[in-house]
Write a protein that binds this DNA or RNA. Sequence first.
DNA 1: GTCTATAGAAGGATAGAC
DNA 2: GTCTATCCTTCTATAGAC
Lengths: 187, 187
Amino acid sequence: MARTAAPGSRETILTAASGLFYVHGIRAVGMAQVIEAAGCGKNLLYKHFASKAELAAAYLALARQERERSTTEALRWSADPAGRLIALVEEIATTVRQPGYRGCAFRNYLTEFPGEDDAPARVAHDYLRDTRRQIADLVAALDRAEPDVLTDRLCLLVDGLYAGRPERAQVAVDWVTELVRPAAGPR
Amino acid sequence: MARTAAPGSRETILTAASGLFYVHGIRAVGMAQVIEAAGCGKNLLYKHFASKAELAAAYLALARQERERSTTEALRWSADPAGRLIALVEEIATTVRQPGYRGCAFRNYLTEFPGEDDAPARVAHDYLRDTRRQIADLVAALDRAEPDVLTDRLCLLVDGLYAGRPERAQVAVDWVTELVRPAAGPR
DNA sequence: GTCTATAGAAGGATAGAC
DNA sequence: GTCTATCCTTCTATAGAC
């Protein structure tokens, strides 16, 4: 019988690539670097990922999975829409405060590859569209007047939170709390 | 006799490079592309700019000049701090709404070259620091309680405005107006 | 023998720099 | 124009597990 394929080699490569891509940017990282970090041969990498674009798409897809896992976990303890919106922003604030934080992977990709319409760009655009829709749905559930304005404001705030410094994370959380619980008492 | 250097050749090259850098990103544009767009020889480019990093630094310095020209022009008609803050954000909103808008050049650079500490990175960091300080100064002039919180909120809002879609530009302007003129009547 | 893996050479394009 | 270097990708050669 033939030699069995190494299990988990795809994950090993993808994990190595993800770390490098996020820290240094995708354009700055060469395939040789990924291969060295993964400790595999070139053939194996190209067997799992036909091109660098596909590897980048897989990197973003994995990032989405991790983001969604964190988000659903954060939303687990809040039942009402206002609490869920606060938890949503709190989770992003926690992410932003992490030591190695280097921006949103999806927004970073679209900045690194502007105007492109390949597989990773679609993953990035889909993620941004879906997360904004999630905010819109929660705002709609708040049953307030002018939900569109509040949705836009929260999206603006989230975009600023992702882009900004960790020092402003708490300010964003406090602000959202104030916005979705207007009569919540002193801040 | 030797031929005299073409006057304005530096500006021609820098203008060509700036357009390409902003639209496609700096990493995506090669020096050959800049040379072709500028319609000059390679030697002339390297006479004016010793390296691509220097050309990128000049591109960002030019972008800063243009931003500051627009900003001072926008602030010209407002004397009070609140009006100036609104005008500041209105000017950014106008920029964001322009057809070819592709993000803030300085923030884009820092995303394309993370962790770098070269000449263009310094230009970018200086610009961000100074613009944030400008907001802080205007907020201080408002003479309100908790100026730091309002400053952070405005910076958050501005970051979100730069990062987001043009459709949200008006929302940002309205929000700032509400923030700095709390009793300004119906929106 | 057969399959998978690594390692390295080589293709072809393009990069920045002189 | 040229030089060197590096990019992504492919192909070849070899070693090891079944």
